[in-house]
Amino acid sequence: MSESKNETSTQENSQWPLYEVFIRSKNGLEHRHVGSLHASDAEMALENARDVYTRRQEGVSIWVVESKNITASNPENSGELFEPAKDKIYRHPTFYELPIELKHI
């Protein structure tokens, strides 16, 4: 995702908004982020995403969302966000000790 810098641009035209593109490669799988592109509106973003990201049957469904509508976590906060999970090994099955002869559990 990029930060828009329209205000510093020397061009006369303000540049088209940026959209993030998500593709479902086949039914049964989730949509995955594949990249981004500029478009004048959502419909054009969808059409361009089709032309750019599915030229070789890479997808059966496309989402586009304007980049400015995405709220992202900040790497500076990674510690407080993700570290608490580190020492909670009791959330994993191997934490619990059972005899090996036991089956199907």
């Binding site: 995702m1 990029s2 810098k5 329209n6 641009s9 061009q11 540049q15 750019v52």
Partner: peptide, 18 residues
């Protein structure tokens, strides 16, 4: 397009690149 998008993640606009 893929490459311009990658460059834009570094805080430069498409218009500036062009």
């Amino acid at each position: 397009l893929y490459l311009y998008s990658a460059a834009e993640t570094l805080g430069i606009s498409r218009d500036e690149l062009f």
